[in-house]
Every structure is written in C-alpha cells, then in structure tokens.
Nucleic acid binder design. Structure first.
Lengths: 188, 188
DNA sequence: TCCATACTTGAATGATCGTTCCATAATTGG
DNA sequence: CCAATTATGGAACGATCATTCAAGTATGGA
C-alpha cells in the first residue's frame, strides 16, 4: 500500500477551534474553516463528515484540552486554595482568546443533544476536580468548612464564565484579576 | 392626509429581541425576524434599514429595558444588600430566557463599534447604580467597608453573566440560587 | 366615494451557503 | 516505473441568504 503524507488532524482541529471560537458556528463558513485548518475542502468532509460534526469535534477537543489545563493549574500548588487561584489566574491570562465552551453554550443553549453529551461529561470531571481541591482547602483551613463544596465548585465554574464574558467584552486584565480576588473572597 | 394604522414598532422590536436572543445575529434569518415581529419584510427594511441596524436597535432596547429592570430590583428594598439580592434573584428567575447582552458580547466581542457604543453607555449606568447600593450596604453594615465598591460592582455584573451562562446551559434554578448566595458571600 | 398613505405579500436579484463531483498532483510500497 | 492511496482545488449543485422591486390591500380624512 502506498501512503502519501496525511494531513495533521490535530493541527486542523486547532484551526477549526480558532475559527469557531471567534465567529461561532453560524458565523463560520466552510471557506474560513479550510483556510484556517490548512487542508482542502474535500479532506474536511472526508475526515469530519460535515460542518456540524466538525463543530462537535472541535468543541470536544477544546473541552478536553481546557480541562487538562484546568487540572494542571489546580494541581500546580500544594494548597487547595492556591491551586484554585492558579486556575482562575490562568483563565485571566487567556481571557483574550474567546472560549468555545462559553460560545457554544450561549449559541445553542441546551438544545443540541450532541453538545449536551460532551458538556455534561467534561463538566462533571471538572466539577469533581474542583470539589476535591475545595475539600483540600477546607482541610487546610483556607476555605470555610461550612461551605458546600459542590456549590463552591459550581460558583467557581460560573465565575470562570463570567470572567471570560467580561474579557470578551473588552475588560482589561487588571479588572479581571479583581474579579478573581472577589470570587476567592466568597470561599473564606 | 390619510393614515392607515401603523404597526407597533416597540412590539416588533420585542419580537426581534426574542429571535436574536435565541439564535444570535448570524443564526437569525430575515424570514424568522419578520415572522416573529409580525410585520412585512418591506416594513422591516423601511423602519430599521437593514438586519445589522435592526440588531443594534434590538440590543439597545433590550439593554435599556434590562437596565430599567435591574434598577427597579436594586431599589426594591430599603437596605442596599437586599436590593442587590433582589437584582440577582430576578436574574435567576429570568434565566430561562437567553440574554441578548451576553449573546451579543460573546458573538462579536469588542469588534463592532456600533455595539461598543451601546454597551459602554449602558454598562456605565448599571455599574454606577450598583456602586451606589454597595455604598449603601457598607454604610448599613451589611457589606465589608474594606471592599472597593467599583470592584464589587464589576464582580456582581460578571456574576450576572455567569448565572446566565449557567442557566443557558441548563442548570436548574436551585443551582442558580446557590450561585447568588455564593456571590453575596463575597461581599460580607 | 375617492385618494393618498402605510403596510403586506410574492417574486426577483445576486451573493453566499454547505456540500459533492471530478480531475489532478503528490507520495510510497511493490 | 507502476499502482494504489490520499491529498488538493475548481467547478457545479441546489438551497438559502439579505435585500429590493412591483403590485395589491387596507385605512381614514376630504
């Protein structure tokens, strides 16, 4: 069997993530996608089926990567509260890049089962990871023991979205850092 | 001069707000808009120019109405903290309806001067109203005096966005109420 | 009753949409 | 060098897009 070079599926998905993040699903044309992905139109449809499946693949991969980065930050410090702080500061540092999670959530709500499946799966794992670190923080005396760790985790996730909406709207980094400080206040 | 009945511009705008909120700018077609607005295509273009100008008008009016409702809730209680609480609870109660403010912010970022003008104007007035009530709360002993009222206001606005993203994603009302409780904790 | 006005509808325009067909270039094992 | 495979880009498809043109239908004052 002769096999000429195959294009890099992961790099192509990265390009698709960029386009979808910036313009949403409806605002992204097939031409914009193939340009950003660096592949031919035919290859796009051969590899991903259609635009919607490509979108789902992009959301899925973005979510996986983003969770990995959240986990890394969460574990980057010994104390639970410092891990949480690191996670939020990383969000602030990347707030100039639009988030495909927030974008897809607000563009489609809960109306697409394809997306819901991806979101619930990833959301659950992120939530659990945050809950674990909240528990750490409570044990270490940095977070109020009376707090429901699940509620605290949901609050932190909602604040990540809030920070990203603010950043997307043009808020300067200092204002976003201030949002992090306020969010952490709620845990004490 | 003979003047047959003119259509209700405000009611038409309400229909446009519904469609744009649910599907975004790119996801809303002229046909969907005229159907929801209850007017003819020709009237749409005569009254609003084109789709983009209609969108801007819808965002503007939605923003004005939403500010009015926020102000009403903020002033609905004597104590500052209770006004803030009422504002956040109203957001929770309406979290099933997508917010055109969050939607337009995330769809276009800060890339459209038309939208930026609307947003900065309304955002400023909302921020000032919240700041005033934070000051009230500090004077009344419900909010930590050490807090920067501006930062607190930004935090509350970000949490409104966070609550709406969570609601749009399908979170149940109880979880959203919990987000409000957590946000208020940060003020104490 | 008649006319001017305001609105509605349907057809038409040209552009762009997602998608597919097809011909071609490039690569590598046999 | 051939054959098979995998990519590419252009042309074409029908659908739908935003927008405009043209004709028709009400309305209410004269």
């Amino acid at each position: 069997m002769a096999r000429p070079r195959e294009f890099d599926t992961d790099a192509a998905l990265d390009g698709a993530i960029d386009v979808f993040s910036e313009h949403g699903f409806e605002g992204s044309s097939a031409q914009m996608l193939v340009d950003a992905m660096g592949i031919g139109r035919q290859s796009l449809y051969a590899a991903f089926g259609d635009k919607w499946q490509l979108y789902c693949a992009a959301v899925h991969r973005y979510g996986l990567d983003e969770c990995t980065r959240h986990f890394g930050a969460l574990r980057s410090d010994a104390r639970g509260i410092d891990g949480i702080d690191a996670m939020l500061r990383r969000v602030v540092e990347t707030a100039d890049q639009p988030c495909l999670g927030v974008s897809s959530t607000y563009e489609f709500g809960a109306s697409r089962p394809d997306l819901e499946k991806i979101k619930t799966l990833l959301g659950k794992s992120l939530r659990e990871a945050i809950v674990a670190r909240v528990h750490d923080g409570q044990r270490e005396g940095d977070i109020a023991p009376s707090l429901d760790a699940q509620a605290a985790a949901d609050f932190l996730i909602a604040n990540i979205a809030g920070i990203r909406v603010a950043g997307r709207g043009g808020a300067d980094p200092a204002a976003l850092v201030s949002l992090v400080d306020m969010a952490l206040r709620a845990l004490r």
